[in-house]
C-alpha cells in the first residue's frame, strides 16, 4: 500500500537532476543517486540545502526567465513533495516533504518577481559586487528629503487655514510626483537593459577573467539601480497617498 501510493504519485517523472542532501537513503542506507525517492524503501529524500533557487526550478541563471517554464516546474515539483501526499507517512518523511516544499516555495516566490530575482542573483553571485558600498547620489537623497518635508508640511496644514499655501504645495508635489514617476520609468528601462546585458554574458560559453569582470560590473550597476529605485518608489508611493 505504502509503496504503490508513492509510485502512483502523479509527478514522479519530473526531472530528477536536483542535487540531494545525501547520496544515501536516510532510512535504509541504500544508494540513491539523485533520486527523489529511494528505489528500495520508497522513502522521500531531502533536497540539498545548498541548492540555489535557479537550479531548484531547473532554470538557467538568467534574469529574463521563461515564466511558463518556471511555473510548470514549480507545480510539478510541488506535486512531488507536497506535504498533503505525506500526511499518512511517518514523521521523518513529513518533515522532509515540508523542508523540500519550503525550499521550492521560497525559490518560486523569489524568482517569479523580476525585482526579487535580481536581488537574489546579486546575493548569489556576491563576489566583488557584494562588498561595493552603493551610496546613493547626494542630490537624490536631498531631493527626496525635500519632498518628504513638503509632504509633512502639507499634512500639518489644516484645511480651514492657509488654503493658498496648501494649494501651492499640492501643485508642487503633483509636479514632483510626475517628475519622479518619469525617473522611475527611466530607471526601470535601464534595469531591463542591464538584465539583458547579464543574460548576454551568461550566454557566452565559458567564463574567463574578462567576462567575470564584466559580469561584476553589471551586478554593481544592477545593485545601484535597485537601490535608487527603492528610494524613488517609496517617495512616489508617499506622494500618491497625499496628492492622489
Amino acid at each position: 500500500m505504502d509503496a504503490s501510493q508513492t509510485t502512483d504519485s502523479p509527478a514522479r517523472d519530473v526531472h530528477r537532476d536536483l542535487p540531494m542532501a545525501s547520496s544515501m537513503c536516510w532510512h535504509c542506507q541504500s544508494e540513491v543517486p539523485g533520486e527523489y525517492f529511494c528505489s528500495r524503501c520508497v522513502k522521500v529524500q531531502p533536497l540539498s540545502k545548498e541548492l540555489d533557487y535557479f537550479t531548484c526550478l531547473n532554470l538557467p541563471r538568467t534574469l529574463n526567465l521563461d515564466d511558463k517554464a518556471l511555473e510548470e516546474t514549480f507545480y510539478a515539483l510541488s506535486r512531488t513533495f507536497h506535504p498533503d501526499y505525506f500526511a499518512t507517512k511517518d514523521e521523518s518523511e513529513q518533515s522532509i516533504s515540508l523542508g523540500n516544499t519550503a525550499l521550492l516555495n521560497a525559490a518560486y516566490q523569489t524568482l517569479k518577481d523580476p525585482i526579487r530575482r535580481v536581488e537574489y542573483l546579486i546575493r548569489l553571485e556576491a563576489g566583488s559586487a557584494r562588498t561595493v558600498q552603493t551610496s546613493p547620489p547626494a542630490d537624490l537623497l536631498n531631493e527626496i528629503l525635500e519632498i518628504q518635508e513638503d509632504i509633512e508640511t502639507l499634512r500639518s496644514l489644516s484645511p480651514e487655514e492657509s488654503s493658498g499655501q496648501r494649494q501651492a504645495l499640492h501643485t508642487k508635489l503633483r509636479d514632483d510626483r510626475g517628475m519622479l514617476a518619469e525617473r522611475q520609468a527611466r530607471l526601470e528601462a535601464c534595469l531591463s537593459e542591464q538584465c539583458q546585458r547579464w543574460d548576454d554574458l551568461q550566454a557566452d560559453a565559458g567564463e574567463d577573467a574578462r567576462i567575470r569582470a564584466q559580469k561584476d560590473e553589471v551586478l554593481k550597476d544592477l545593485r545601484e539601480l535597485l537601490s535608487h529605485r527603492t528610494y524613488i518608489r517609496n517617495t512616489v508611493h508617499d506622494l500618491a497617498e497625499i496628492v492622489g
Binding site: 537623497l141 528629503l145 518608489r233
Partner: peptide, 12 residues
C-alpha cells in the same frame, strides 16, 4: 544625509 538602499529610508 544618508539612506538605506534596501528599504529606502532616508535620514538627516
Amino acid at each position: 544625509i544618508v539612506g538605506a538602499p534596501e528599504c529606502g529610508d532616508v535620514m538627516k
